[in-house]
Each structure stands twice: as C-alpha cells, then as structure tokens.
Design a protein around this nucleic acid. Structure first.
Lengths: 190, 190
DNA sequence: GAATTCATGTAACTTGTTACATGATTTA
DNA sequence: TAAATCATGTAACAAGTTACATGAATTC
C-alpha cells in the first residue's frame, strides 16, 4: 500500500511516466523507500484501476511513446486519507542481512568480515555524500523559513538519512576495531 | 533466503520447535531480523524438503505435541556456504513508512505529526532499554575477551541496534523541535 | 469469565525480486 | 562496437502479511 501512496505523492509534484517515477525514486527517496521498476508499473496499473490516476499516451519521434500518469482528485483524497491515519506501530519490520551475518560471525573468517565491513562503510559513505549535497541544495530554498514548507520536510527526511547512515558507519568502524582487537587477543593467547 | 539462514543459525544453538523459534526471533534478533510465525512454519517445511533440518514429534501431556526441528550436517554446510559468500551489495532496500509520511509532511496537521513522532520516540526507547539490558547481560560472558567469541559477536549486533536506534530517537527529537519552530514562525508572520 | 500461553498449521493475498523482451538513439 | 539512455511492459517466483482454525491449561 505504501508504495502506491509514494507514487501518488510524487505525482502531486507533476504528471510523470513510470520511467520518470523510477528515476525519481532512485534519485530522491531511495534511501528511505526503494522501488523496483516492475513494481512501479504494476502499481500504476492498480492505481489506474482504482481511478486514482489517469494516463494519456504522448507520441514521440525517435523515442518510444510516453505514457504519462496524472493524479486524479480521488487519488489526491486517498493520499490525504492515508497521510491522516498513522498506523498503530510506526517502526516497521527490519531485515538487515549484514547484521544477521555478524550475529553468526564466529563462523566467518575475520579477514573476510573486515573486508566486507570496509565495503559497507564505503557504500554508506557514498550515500552520505549524496545526502550532504542534497542537504546543501535544500538550504537554498530555506532562506525564508516557514515559506517553503515543502523544502522544510524534505530536509527532515534528509536529516534522517544523515543521522542513521552516520550511525551505521560509526558502528561498522567500531566493529572493525573490535575484530582487530579480538584477532590480537587470539594471537597473544596462542 | 536469509530467513532460512537465520532459522538454520538459531537451530545450531539447539533443536527447537517452530514456536520456540518464533519467540527466539522476537526476543533476540527481532531488532534486525523480524519473522512472522506463519513464515517460520513455511520455511521450516522448505528446509525439511531440502534436507537441511529433520523433525521429530514429541508427545506432551496437557499441552499440544511438539515438533522439534534439528539441523542436519547438510543444513550446517548450507549455512556455512551462505556465511562465506557475501552479496555484492550489503545494504538492503529500505522501506521506512514514517519517513515517507514526513516527506509529504506539509499535508499533515503539525500537531498530529508531533503526536506521532513522540509515539515513535517512546517505541524506540522501549527497544533501547531492552538492548541496554541485553548488552549488560552479555558483558558477563566477556570477562575473558577472545574466549567467548559468540558473546563477542552478539554484542556487536546489539551495538548496532543501540547506535541506530539512538540516532533515530535523536532525529525524531530534532524533528519535534524543528516543527515547533516552524509553527512559531507561522504564528509570527500572521 | 476473559485473556494469555503453549503449539500446530493453512489459505488467501499483497509485495518484492529477477529475468526477459523490444527497439531506436546517443555516447564512450 | 559496446554500453548506456529512453521507454514500455510481462512472467515467474520468492517473501511477507493477515486472518483463520483448533484446543487444553493457566493466570488475571
């Protein structure tokens, strides 16, 4: 359901094709809501069946035809209803594979583990750089606070990514240090 | 797939029933890997088909019969293979509903938003308290470091929960402050 | 007397993932 | 010439969610 609401929300910005939606997901909200392209097309179909979006085909020359989706008043209302009704439990189920592996870390070669943790740090730091750039870009629209409420909320979500990913990087770095300590201890006791 | 590996990993501790596995998931690794009871039974069936676990029925008096699952050498090997082969991308797709809602926060009543954020803080802080207790409990097994490698890795995962959830609480609290600031600004400019 | 714990599961459904298929244009 | 971009989707499968069904024993 939430993916449908995410699509509706993005369509309030402007009418878009499935393809454009996919790249918007990837470039703006991917760090807190990921979506596959096949899922987007599927959900767009479902939304059209419900009358929450309409589509029109725009022929193009040289490029494939576009199918542009527009949110309807009913779609807008459905989005608003969803926004007004928070679920009983806000924190969702987590599935974090790297942590699961580390839980069974005594069965993994420490060197391999360290290699993977370093890779994780690199991955997360790349996202952090993007988020920092996004944050700076948002500041521009924030000069008169309270005016651009939209940029205000976008920045809150960016801040979430920054704080959480920074915590993850810090964790991975502490893990690296601890594992090295463990290795040194094992060498000493032999 | 990972859920199956999680089940296999927990079964290395001791043979267990689906019911016991569910409560182990809930009480120990829930904060980084959640599982539904119906999913656990389904995956246990799949694991049995693959020959990764075997089951025997233990009759009980007064209580329903138990079906105790034991990991097989093949299951152990499958787990080991999985632990040795890390995926190309370590960070998994995130779906974080509260952040999605805040992204469209300009369409939500600020008072409602604040109420929900406070609820989120409370939820997360409850988990944090459990994690802190778990962390203290683990310390007991850590007096001679390097010995109890198992407790060592369990603590690393606890640390992840602590750092990430603390970051989330900090974020929610900053959000609350920022939203109050926004409300004050709006009052002033009217 | 109602709710919780213990213990099994099934059924129906919704979401998410991976791979495939098509085909022109542009960039490296 | 190979890869990436633009643009549509389908098919098959894997994983996750919600609700239902049964039933004794225990606790509030």
């Amino acid at each position: 359901m939430s993916l449908q609401k995410g699509i509706l929300g993005l369509l309030t910005l402007k009418p878009m094709t499935g393809y454009e939606l996919k790249s918007l997901f990837d470039n703006s909200i991917n760090y807190f809501w990921a979506a596959q392209q096949s899922q987007i097309y599927r959900e767009l179909g479902a939304l059209e069946n419900k009358g929450y979006v309409t589509s029109r085909i725009e022929p193009q020359t040289g490029k494939p035809d576009k199918k542009v989706y527009t949110i309807t008043p009913q779609g807008d209302e459905a989005l608003q209803t969803w926004l007004n009704t928070f679920p009983a439990k806000l924190s969702m189920a987590i599935r974090d594979e790297i942590t699961l592996r580390i839980f069974f870390g005594d069965r993994i070669d420490p060197e391999e583990l360290k290699f993977q943790l370093k890779k994780l740090v690199k991955e997360k730091q790349e996202v952090l750089e993007v988020l920092r750039a996004m944050n700076e870009a948002c500041k521009g629209f924030m000069t008169d606070i309270g005016r651009d409420k939209d940029a205000f909320f976008k920045r809150l979500t960016i801040k979430k990514g920054l704080l959480v990913f920074e915590a993850e990087v810090r964790w991975a770095e502490e893990c690296l240090k601890d594992i090295e300590g463990l290795q040194a201890d094992i060498r000493d006791t032999v």
